[in-house]
Computed example of a mutant assay.
Amino acid sequence: MSSRLVQLLGDTVRQQRESRDLSQQKLASLAGVSQAMVARVERGDRSPGLPLLERLLAAMDVQLTVAVEPLDAHLDATMAGLAARPIADRIDELNLDRLLDRLGDLPHVISGGTAALLQGAPIPVDATEVAIRWRDSKRFTKWLLASYGQRWNARWGEFGGVFVEPEEPGEHRWRTRYGEIRAAMCDELPDAVEVRHGDRGYRVVPLVEVEIADPRAADLLRRYRERRIRQRSAATDD
């Protein structure tokens, strides 16, 4: 089984589990397997056989369906759909304004995919990304604790079980009561520009800098632009 498919199946199990507010231990108990097995499947460390996959999904009252599509067609369809949606809807879906309001006067600049979204880029964004200075890490930690933040635990493939402080080793990714937040900790905040949507302004890393610093965002934007060029070329040929 390809590594991409293994990771896709693992992500599917994790998304279904989290949408039901189940811990890995609870899912393991329902499916009659070990918690370590669930963690390995979700991390993509193990290629799950169909019987195991069916047990995990059945424990959540869902089942696996199979379909075929052109390679990475789901990305093209997702980005085409995002391009057609108002940015205001995507801001609301991300719960961005509420999270930023709760950050209050903590110095930050919106970065990564979130900055790209605010500048009109049709790339998938599932968490608010910000740049925060190391000198403000104690204030950030205090905010995380007040917001019931749980840090991403890469070892177990779920949130929780590790210290929330940015100084502690691990990914700078937390789930809070206001949504998921990912931080790029830095010595100084990057240069920013302001973009406005409605009556609100956002300080964001310029799109060209996002593409330099974020390989995933750069790859998605390049793919989207190349597809648009092919579509225009095909329309001209017709």
Rank of each mutant, 00 (worst) to 15 (best):
P169R: 05
M37T: 00
D238T: 10
A84C: 05
E226M: 14
Q119R: 14
L118F: 11
W152Q: 02
G49I: 06
R14G: 05
K26D: 06
L22M: 14
S111V: 15
V109P: 03
Y148M: 15
I181V: 07
F163W: 11
L30C: 01
A67S: 12
P124W: 02
R222Q: 08
R200V: 12
R228G: 15
G113M: 05
T12L: 14
V162P: 03
A183S: 07
R55D: 10
A115I: 05
R173I: 05
T128M: 07
T114R: 02
R216I: 07
A235E: 12
G112E: 06
L52W: 02
R139V: 00
A213Q: 06
I110Y: 04
R46W: 06
V205F: 07
A67P: 02
Q15R: 14
V38K: 02
N95A: 10
S47F: 01
R155I: 00
L145P: 00
Y224E: 01
Q24Y: 07
A127R: 10
Q231N: 09
E211L: 15
A192F: 07
P215L: 12
Q7S: 10
R182E: 01
A183N: 02
Q16N: 12
Q231A: 01
R232L: 15
A154D: 05
V204E: 02
W152K: 02
D92K: 03
L145A: 13
V66Y: 06
Q231I: 07
P86Q: 13
L71F: 11
A217F: 04
S233R: 15
A77G: 15
R85E: 14
R230T: 11
I91S: 02
M185P: 00
I212V: 13
P122C: 04
S23W: 03
